[in-house]
Design a protein around this nucleic acid. Structure first.
Lengths: 145, 145
DNA sequence: CTCGGTGCAAAATGTTTGCAAGTAC
DNA sequence: GTACTTGCAAACATTTTGCACCGAG
């Protein structure tokens, strides 16, 4: 995602974000942010922890885990799978889409033809088999808003 | 999702699915399927377990949990959050979309203007605040295919 | 009768909480 | 110096695994 020379710019952005949210700039947070900013993939807390450990042998897993959540809260990164809750099952096997409320975690099913007919980007036309596509809207629902 | 009179049809569908996948029709599986088919929301294993317990006090949580996964594998239902793995973080905070490989669980980021410009369904225009929208394609990636 | 399925218990995994000591501001 | 952070440890929640017994086909 970033060349080394871009890291400095990123750290400025990070500094600003911290100030904005009243977070202190600690050695650990800087290390975690740097590692995360370099990531090209979607690592879990443990993977990030192991990478950081090489340079910072004294950092604890807790700090990494907690910091990642803090970062997610202030919008520096996103959580890809699971939003803290246990696995949930959807009895509706038809093609449909979801609205997820970030406050109460409620999931609302909805149907929309235009969403169903989305065209695949060219990069997935060859070599990939697309079994399903779904749209996830995230926001605040009518009950929580 | 279903009126009571439709349950019978559902059970026939279930019987067919079981035969198709060499699964035996057990009392427990039928109870679980019936409960799931009635669900309007996105319950977790524990919720389903508690509901079934009322009618079948001897059923175990394990059976419910295992059966739900079995059902997911044969396509009777879908898993909404978490696909078995721990929480993963996405350092890319820009608007982008995901392709997830159901075999290796790899997640590929991609960008697509037409996806970004999706129009919101009318039902979310009032009372809801939509903070983000993303498209998730699921299938088999080029490495696994 | 046979093999898949169930129930129970234990283990593994991942996440959260409480608190004393450390450190940025 | 004060308040926020950290690191450690214990508690929690959830999912997975092993195995003897049971029951559908």
């Amino acid at each position: 995602m970033l060349w080394d020379k871009e890291i400095d710019m990123e750290m400025d952005f990070f500094r600003a974000k911290c100030k904005e949210n009243n977070l202190r700039m600690t050695t650990q947070r800087m290390a975690i942010y740097e590692e995360v900013a370099r990531s090209k993939d979607h690592p879990n807390a443990d993977t990030i922890f192991k990478k950081i450990q090489r340079k910072h042998p004294t950092i604890s897993f807790d700090t990494v885990n907690r910091t990642l959540q803090t970062f997610a809260e202030i919008g520096i990164l996103n959580v890809v799978e699971g939003h803290g809750d246990p696995k949930r099952f959807d009895p509706n096997a038809d093609t449909h889409h979801h609205f997820r409320c970030v406050r109460c975690n409620r999931i609302i099913d909805f149907y929309d033809d235009s969403y169903d007919r989305l065209k695949l980007p060219k990069q997935f036309k060859k070599g990939f088999i697309v079994l399903g596509k779904k749209v996830v809207l995230e926001g605040i629902c009518d009950r929580c808003g």
